[in-house]
């Protein structure tokens, strides 16, 4: 079921177009990745979803009805540029932001206590924010974002500035939040985290949606019919055996055996290939190469640039 969608959203600033006819559809209880190079318009879209800026045209829907100002309490937002009052004490500040999101003082205190214990940061309560390191501030910021237990969470580049340990902690929390029923949108350049976490993605470049959908089907769509075959036997025979529909891209040999990357042409199938190889070699592995999001990302963004440059 769909929790949130944007239909044909456009936004222009004085000197440039930030978004042109962008549509996204975020399924309920999913982790939705918003990808795109710097300046693609991701942050503008996130600001529009948060009702910080209004779109020039287009419509936004939340739970099947139009998004309205009251929905602000159902959304949590962690901007890319983290912001906290430097001179204010951590606990006092977290309480303030929680109450601004509509929590009453008692509930906010109770939840803060829970999260501070969970992250083992109780001792920071009376410290000023400026006394904390950047990573510590990020943790506080994360708690502030999720404190009001919103149905939809929006993270803009959540992993930037975190060390690997804290990145892991954050990833686990994000997944846990999803498992408890929250829907999460995050924008990032970090493709490994996308593959690890996201169910759906949208790639935005140059203010337009390039591709969107379920991450697995996108990767399937972009696969190049290349198979990686591990085998033992006389490697020299490989080229003679295969018809012109199968092209050996490269062959690497180790004392333990050989690995060949073979590209399939003209809709030939992996089963036929396997049948051709089986009588002659001892096959140790046979896998299809599925392109990583990183490759797809670079590929698509470069393709976008191509026509523009000519």
């Amino acid at each position: 079921m769909e929790l949130f969608s944007a239909k044909n959203v456009s936004k222009s600033f004085v000197n440039h177009k930030a978004l042109g006819n962008v549509s996204i559809s975020v399924p309920e209880k999913s982790i939705y990745g918003l990808l795109g190079p710097n300046g693609a318009g991701k942050t503008t879209l996130l600001r529009i979803i948060n009702q910080i800026t209004a779109p020039d045209t287009g419509e936004l829907f939340f739970k099947g009805r139009r998004l309205n100002p009251g929905d602000i309490h159902r959304i949590g937002y962690m901007p890319e540029e983290r912001g906290l009052y430097k001179k204010m004490k951590v606990g006092e500040q977290a309480l303030y932001f929680g109450r601004l999101k509509g929590l009453d003082k008692k509930t906010a205190m109770k939840r803060l206590k829970y999260w501070f214990e969970k992250f083992e940061i109780q001792s920071w309560w009376d410290k000023k924010v400026e006394e904390l390191s950047k990573g510590m501030q990020q943790k506080v910021q994360f708690i502030i974002t999720i404190l009001h237990e919103p149905e939809m969470l929006i993270f803009d580049e959540p992993f930037s500035g975190f060390d690997p340990i804290n990145t892991n902690l954050l990833k686990n929390e994000v997944t846990a939040l999803r498992d408890r029923g929250a829907t999460i949108i995050f924008s990032t350049h970090n493709m490994s985290s996308v593959e690890e976490l996201c169910d759906h993605i949208t790639l935005i470049d140059n203010s337009r949606v390039i591709i969107n959908g379920e991450i697995n089907s996108i990767r399937q769509k972009f696969k190049l019919d290349i198979y990686r075959v591990g085998f033992q036997g006389e490697a020299e025979k490989l080229n003679d055996l295969l018809s012109s529909n199968y092209q050996v891209l490269n062959l690497t040999s180790t004392p333990g055996g050989h690995t060949a990357r073979i590209k399939l042409h003209n809709k030939s199938t992996d089963n036929v290939l396997l049948n051709m190889l089986l009588p002659h070699f001892h096959i140790t592995s046979f896998t299809e190469e599925i392109p990583g999001m990183n490759d797809i990302f670079i590929d698509l963004v470069n393709k976008q640039k191509g026509p523009g440059n000519q």
């Binding site: 600001r47 948060n50 009702q51 910080i52 100002p69 602000i72 959304i75 937002y77 901007p79 540029e81 983290r82 912001g83 906290l84 009052y85 430097k86 932001f97 601004l100 999101k101 502030i144």
Partner: peptide, 17 residues
């Protein structure tokens, strides 16, 4: 200026107008 340069403002305006 303080709210703007410390970027608190973006969090604030996601909660209040």
């Amino acid at each position: 200026i303080e709210e703007k340069s410390s970027r608190v403002v973006e969090i604030l305006v996601s909660s209040v107008r």
